[in-house]
Design a protein around this nucleic acid. Sequence first.
DNA 1: ATGAAAGCGCTAACAT
DNA 2: ATGTTAGCGCTTTCAT
Lengths: 354, 354
Amino acid sequence: MASLAAELGVSRTTVSNAYNRPDQLSPELRRRVLETARRLGYPGPDPVARSLRTRKAGAVGLLLTENLSYAFRDPAAIGVLEGLALACEGAGVGLHLVPASPGRDDVAAVHRAGVDGFVVYSVPDDDPHLAAVLARPVPTVVIDQPRVEGVDRVGPDDAAAITELADHLVGLGHRKVGVLCMRLARDRNDGFVPVERQQNAHFHVQRTRLEALAKAFARVGVDWAEVPVVERFDHTVDDGASAARQLLDSYPQVTALICTSDILALGALAEAERRGLRVPADLTVTGFDGIAEAERAGLTTVHQPVLEKGRAAGKLLLASADHGAPRVITLNTELRIRNTSAPPRTMEEHWFGP
Amino acid sequence: MASLAAELGVSRTTVSNAYNRPDQLSPELRRRVLETARRLGYPGPDPVARSLRTRKAGAVGLLLTENLSYAFRDPAAIGVLEGLALACEGAGVGLHLVPASPGRDDVAAVHRAGVDGFVVYSVPDDDPHLAAVLARPVPTVVIDQPRVEGVDRVGPDDAAAITELADHLVGLGHRKVGVLCMRLARDRNDGFVPVERQQNAHFHVQRTRLEALAKAFARVGVDWAEVPVVERFDHTVDDGASAARQLLDSYPQVTALICTSDILALGALAEAERRGLRVPADLTVTGFDGIAEAERAGLTTVHQPVLEKGRAAGKLLLASADHGAPRVITLNTELRIRNTSAPPRTMEEHWFGP
DNA sequence: ATGAAAGCGCTAACAT
DNA sequence: ATGTTAGCGCTTTCAT
């Protein structure tokens, strides 16, 4: 830029103005500046230098707990991403996906990200990347989890939502239930979950849902310590199927499988079919999220507005006027009763048919 | 940072080293620096200033022709994104989604993006955002389109791929065909496409496919000027259905509908069902891409490795050693003949049954 | 309407 | 092992 100014015999200020404040220049001069720039191969102001000077990066960072590519496998995550992208697009700011693998604790990527703020989507409360984000002097919005003191948050009321679902099942008469849940902590534990691990789960959403389920079933006399809960570290339909298999192999008397995501529930449905169990006659299966595939499958589930979740987070972040109190946006959820939930078969029905 | 150094009675270099080159410091001093930093609330080196100094942003930009959120609706685009994210993650660099709406010609977002390079995915050759990207002094890789002189590119051999498909249809005996294609230029034209518009299409991929189809059918005596081609600006299953409706309303004698994407083909399938046309007995339908939904639907299509496409582009960009000749990666495609293509019914069959 | 001066926060040579 | 010096390229008062 210096050489350009020299060549033109003007100051650098003038060149800068030619790009950033056309009204501060005679149109004629501006034209000359731009043309000379082209001739000399000057590509326009360097965005990084500009960011340093203006203290604005023009981008927001997104931190996920998972491999970046995970976000593109899970329909619910895609919905959140889409909503967030929408909000960013509306404001003309970029969306910077931070490369944070769950395995390696390499937090450097968070430090390196030139962004004006972060959206953190569904990470465990002890995630080192999260700590790194919070240490940065930029605003942050958390989607779903964890709850962090003083930090904005967007998410559903998980306890209320799943309580409604539990009450539905209780009302149908289910007492022998099993649960399929997602990862509860950063360490892999593909299998049954002792109550202690449930209570200490670092993924707040899962912990809340399990707690709410325990409470709802306790009200009708079910001892939660007796309820089998199977955890899966990875989140695919196949994992849901294998979890269902593991649970039903040991607890064939279960009449309802409560899954903390639609993905897992879809897998449970597949496993039920494999075993020749009719849903919902022989087995009730429920999900959580309300993704399109679940609707197609007729799954009874709790629907949450994932796109809205992403968008709300983006808007919150971009509207970060130095607020005093942290803001919390609670999204509406809706129990959608479809074709995978029904009363359990009684013993009579079991032996003599309905 | 200056005040931190002052407080500690050391130079700024030492503070910098504490963060960036632990080996240049006594562990003891380093510990003291980091602790004092915490106490003083110094959040660590500013990423933007560091980028300015090191000339490395630690991120690659992604430019899409569409609303950012479009990328999250199209399974093929998601695949590309995932592959690209994978490559970025592997290298520890961020993925910066550039907010470039197709409508507004606001190129500023491209100028503002602090990135070390760009991946451009499927944009028209006259896209102003593309021009802005190429003007930046950073390496660029194009996925699919357009072809730009001297710029790296990753994509399938569209002509060869669709020629194979055309030959399949020709072999089955189809001569009365119709085509459903995606957007051919930046202006909206939802309807039939005159040959001239086909030849002047700014989306190179679509143009290539149409040209190859024309050539393949010309070889068996079909006059391409007589072949109906319907274009859709938006790319949804519903658009595919409405395009099929528009085409079949005017050309009911068509025996095969060639769609330039699986999404459009899925819509065509829906429309065929709506009209009571059996596929493939009454109507052959083909797609392009090989997305999961297409496989489920049993669609005859051309499969291309979308994830690999994104990953290859990312690797190419990240390995941008000042190469002499531009590099081109051609991906393998594969004709997948499934249940939506069959010989056309003859007139006899039509009147008297098979 | 244009220019001069100052500095955003950092790191990389090159000393010592 | 630590300090000195010199910018990276830009924008922004404030003057003229």
